[in-house]
Design a protein around this nucleic acid. Structure first.
Lengths: 111, 111
DNA sequence: ATCTCGTGCAACCCTGACGTTGCACGACTG
DNA sequence: CAGTCGTGCAACGTCAGGGTTGCACGAGAT
């Protein structure tokens, strides 16, 4: 299940891509339009957009002869739920151990 | 606010690190112990652990002469909430646009 | 007191990611 | 119908990240 998560995190692990996402979150724009608002080339933006699209964070929309992109919240919420579940699981085990530790003394965890 | 997020995503954007996290989620272990269970060197694990620790996803615990690491769910939940908020924001704007579009006709969004 | 074993640090490959420039194509605009 | 403007593709440079080997150190186990 974490298999599809890694590409999403990889997509989110770049500042330029966050800048793109922030722009697209406010309003859909084309690669060229984004290039004028960000300090990188249009081609760089294009690459980022394919990464974001592959991760399902963004969606292309043809408007005349240009291709605008729109930010998709769905994949983000989905990822958020997955993270929440995993985090809760970790803490569940932690508190379980704490409970055992407070009933037993001198716990020597297996190596 | 997304400033502190990027390192977390960078930390989560690697398969080996997820393998480490999965192990630590089940039980706290030292770098050497992890190295025996994963197909990488102890030194590689150590590097991953510093990355994870810097991201706040993991915490060192001294036990005798070894240093075990424990997975922290808190940072994960925190990140999940941030993502959820951002995703909701995007969709909010999307539905707002949809509402406008269905009342007006021939909407030409500003370039 | 000794020796083991876990850790820390440094140097070193190598692949992939980010960014650039340059060019070609094609679909709208006028 | 001509010309603009947005896009796609390819080659290239550069640097950080993931991995390895090698060595040294020191705290605990015995």
């Amino acid at each position: 299940m974490t298999a599809t998560l890694v590409p999403v995190f990889a997509a989110l692990a770049d500042d330029t891509r966050w800048a793109v996402l922030q722009e697209l979150g406010r309003q859909e724009r084309s690669a060229s339009a984004l290039a004028t608002r960000l300090p990188v080339t249009r081609q760089a933006i294009a690459k980022h957009l394919t990464v974001l699209a592959d991760a399902g964070l963004v969606e292309p929309v043809r408007v005349g002869r240009e291709i605008r992109y729109r930010a998709l919240g769905a994949r983000l919420s989905e990822t958020a739920r997955a993270l929440e579940a995993i985090g809760a699981e970790w803490d569940r085990r932690l508190s379980a151990i704490a409970r055992i530790a407070e009933s037993l003394q001198d716990v020597t965890p297996p190596r």
